[in-house]
Amino acid sequence: MLELGPPRREIAEGCRVLAARRLAPGILGHISVRADASRLLIRCRGPKERGLAYTTDEDVRLVGPDGGGSGDGYTPPFELPLHTRILERRPDVMCVVHAHPRDVVVADLAGLPILPVVGAYDIPGAALAADGVPVYPRAALIHTPGLADEVADALGAHHAVVMRGHGLTTVGASVAEAVLRAISVQSIASISLSVAAAGGTPRPIPDEDLAELPNLGSGLNLGAAWRHELARLHEGGLP
């Protein structure tokens, strides 16, 4: 059984980072973490909800696969099946992030895939894009197990899936990893849109350049990067 205090705090922080990075404006979006074989912690809707930018530990609740157990007037998001089905099918995943980054949606609708268009600018992002970021082609609300299975099928063994006319889902071994992956996808989408607006065509960097991008390790890619995101929250006066 996972100790609930630390992951509740991490989910709340992750939601606030998504909002600060404009990946989940307003009240839409959610993060979950696997708690045990059948339950998960997830940002829920409640009587004190103020949007992702103001998510607190109290907004994060332990629920079963059917959504039961949140209590105190809190209810899980309508898209709970998106989380439960991915976690059930991907034992390597501890965290699922679902966000609505505008540039990711716009880039996909413009026909611009997520490609490794940058290298040392964002080494983890380049690796993520080179691994492939598939697209789920429906704009439906993922509120049933059947629809969630379709998204999980599209995600496959990848770390991110674009959801056409909807948003983005990323996965990881931690909240930090899954949120940072979402930030990288958003960054690549934004760069691709800027290239297209300047009259260019986004193209992947050569394989030989990809091969020269070292893995700088979790101490930098996750540790330092996540501390930076949390510091940005406090610098900006966010909770």
Rank of each mutant, 00 (worst) to 15 (best):
R102S: 12
G200H: 06
I183Y: 05
S70V: 02
H234Q: 14
D92H: 03
L168Y: 10
T84Y: 07
D66A: 13
R50Y: 02
L52T: 01
M94K: 12
R34A: 10
R138G: 00
I27M: 14
L216V: 15
S192E: 01
K48G: 13
L4T: 07
G46H: 02
A126T: 09
P116W: 10
G64L: 10
G156K: 13
H30L: 11
H143G: 12
G46N: 02
L23Y: 05
G64T: 13
G14C: 08
S38C: 14
P116K: 09
S38F: 11
D108T: 15
T144M: 13
D66R: 11
V135R: 11
L193N: 04
H83G: 10
G64Q: 14
S38A: 15
P76T: 10
G200T: 06
T84H: 07
S190M: 11
E235N: 02
I27N: 11
E88F: 00
T56S: 11
V175P: 07
S190Q: 14
H158V: 08
V161S: 00
D209P: 00
S70Q: 00
D36S: 03
G14A: 08
E212L: 14
A19M: 04
S174M: 04
L210R: 12
L62F: 02
V161I: 06
G67I: 01
V118Q: 10
A211W: 06
A24F: 04
G125L: 09
G71Y: 10
L147K: 14
Y136V: 01
R16M: 00
S38K: 15
A37W: 11
P7H: 10
L4I: 10
L82N: 01
L23E: 05
A197C: 03
G167S: 04
L80A: 05
G73N: 11
S192V: 04
G146I: 07
P81E: 05
N221P: 00
D72R: 15
L210G: 04
R39G: 12
T170K: 02
G111L: 10
A139F: 01
W226H: 13
E88V: 01
V135T: 14
L115I: 06
V171I: 15
G68T: 14
A110I: 12
G69P: 03
T169S: 14
V161W: 03
P25G: 06
L220P: 12
G236S: 09
